[in-house]
């Protein structure tokens, strides 16, 4: 069986940054890209299963993104796995989680995967929807925020735990094929070795376009999205005031401020 692991390079902001001219995103000049933290955990889940059942399970990282996203695939492949898949063309700019989920579902069908794993959320946009959108598109069973996964590739269902509020754990059985989103802390992700990093550079990455996956231009990008970013902005912060002067002057000013805030002034 194949386990497809959806990964994403997330954008991290520098200390100083600016909003893009169209006002819909941060200026890419100020962004640093790194693998989404959750993806380290979901990839580790897949790798451990592939190692436990070496002839029965293949783990494949998949990402939707421009060429720079290959760094994320290579980062995964440095730890294990033999190949990766990247989906992209220009038409995908502005796609929302529905479109990404649609694309992931198409890859899952193409690969005849039995399971799709994704991070619970990505640290940049924090939608926490992509995995579930893929499940909806595939019509598969799905569980979000998974903290433990027991899988026997011969069985028709998997056992799963989820952490709930107040320290309660929920144990579920889920019918395969299935989509799961993985929570931080489910395992201890391994580090890549230098040998792994060097070998990953030579591992094959397949690049697919939406049309190769059977999606029309109307189904992707802003046209295919149900949501659209209208504006991204930095909210105004409250201004602190440094009260200067002698203790008596400071006390007077402090009293004024209190009165102003109470509406007495």
């Amino acid at each position: 069986m194949k386990i497809l692991v959806a990964i994403k390079l997330v954008a991290a902001l520098d200390e100083d940054f600016e909003i893009r001219e169209d006002g819909c995103d941060a200026d890419p000049d100020y962004l640093d890209y790194q693998l989404n933290e959750w993806d380290d955990y979901s990839w580790e889940v897949a790798l451990q299963l592939a190692e436990k059942f070496p002839d029965k399970i293949e783990a494949i990282p998949v990402t939707v993104g421009p060429e720079r996203a290959e760094a994320g695939l290579r980062k995964c492949l440095a730890k294990g796995g033999e190949r990766g898949i990247r989906v992209w063309d220009e038409s995908l700019e502005g796609s929302d989680p529905m479109v990404i989920g649609h694309l992931l579902a198409a890859v899952a069908k193409r690969e005849q995967a039995t399971m799709v794993l994704a991070g619970t959320l990505a640290s940049d946009h924090a939608y926490a929807q992509t995995g579930m959108c893929a499940a909806a598109e595939l019509g598969w069973a799905h569980i979000a925020v998974v903290s433990r996964l027991d899988l026997d590739p011969e069985a028709s269902e998997a056992n799963v735990r989820r952490e709930l509020e107040g320290g309660i754990e929920e144990e579920l059985a889920i019918q395969l094929p299935a989509v799961m989103t993985i929570q931080l802390g489910i395992n201890e992700p391994r580090y890549a070795s230098l040998r792994g990093i060097k070998q990953a550079k030579a591992k094959p990455l397949e690049t697919l376009t939406p049309s190769e996956l059977g999606l029309s231009p109307q189904e992707v990008g802003e046209a295919g999205s149900l949501s659209q970013v209208r504006r991204m902005y930095i909210p105004e912060k409250g201004q602190a005031e440094l009260i200067e002067g002698t203790p008596a002057e400071q006390a007077t000013r402090l009293a004024e401020i209190i009165k102003e805030l109470r509406g007495d002034a």
Partner: peptide, 26 residues
């Protein structure tokens, strides 16, 4: 490390054995 993409700070790792060090790829 952020600027050196293939570099890595691996904390909380198991004590490294000679076998692992030799096979590490450095």
């Amino acid at each position: 490390m952020k600027k050196s993409k293939d570099s890595q700070l691996a904390l909380g790792a198991d004590a490294m054995t000679a076998d692992e060090a030799l096979a590490y790829g450095a």
